[in-house]
Design a protein around this nucleic acid. Sequence first.
DNA 1: TTCCAGGCAATAC
DNA 2: GTATTGCATGGA
Length: 236
Amino acid sequence: MKLNEPKIKKMYNLLLNKYGYQGWWPLINYKCKKTLKTKFIEKYHPKDYSFPKTKNELFEICIGCILTQNTSWLNVEKSLYNLNQLKLINPNKIINSHSSTIQKCIKPSGYFNLKTKYIKNFTKAFLENKWSNKNPPSRIELLDIKGVGNETADSILLYGFKVPSFVIDAYTKRILLNLKILNKEEPYNKIKYLFENSLEQKYELFQEFHALLVKHAKMYYTNKKTYKQDFLYEEL
DNA sequence: TTCCAGGCAATAC
DNA sequence: GTATTGCATGGA
């Protein structure tokens, strides 16, 4: 057993216990069942790991993964909303759209010139290789796309194609460093394998864990002053 | 006003 | 292989 394996497992249980099921990946068109009390549109789907259910939902997740690069999710939602208004959350529509159209839609999420190219690059590969839930891309194929790096590739695999590939983001690195599970900045893949080797290879678990880490980091790790308030420090 | 968000590629050593 | 830089909007 690896040194940090028990800590990683315990961390998951502590986070789940504190925050509950996160219901990632958010989908803009997912609607909660209407009840007497609620008829709002809910983007999250706690404890339901069956998404994406359609090809367009799969595509929406992939596009969201690219749009959220170094960008807040609120801004990404605005871009997805704009794309959806023009019914562009569809690979064939994206390929046949002018770049200027996409640029206007995704302006709220920043880097819109770059991200338009990235989305086009991804969509081209998506269609050419006929990627689907039954025919997912390999990590290598995704990394070969200009605009898809480690985190984006893993997010697409994990949340889009339900492949158990752990996502490491800036938040996760911050948490591990503060808790001294890592004592220095390590390469992406080394941190990724630390999680993957400590856990069951289940996509549901990987999705939930990563979402919980983001939730936790938003509470304690957006401001350096609150790092030391992280309750995990005492519990692990 | 400044800082930062669910990164990436190009470039320079 | 590691360090630096440009890319861009919107909310706190």
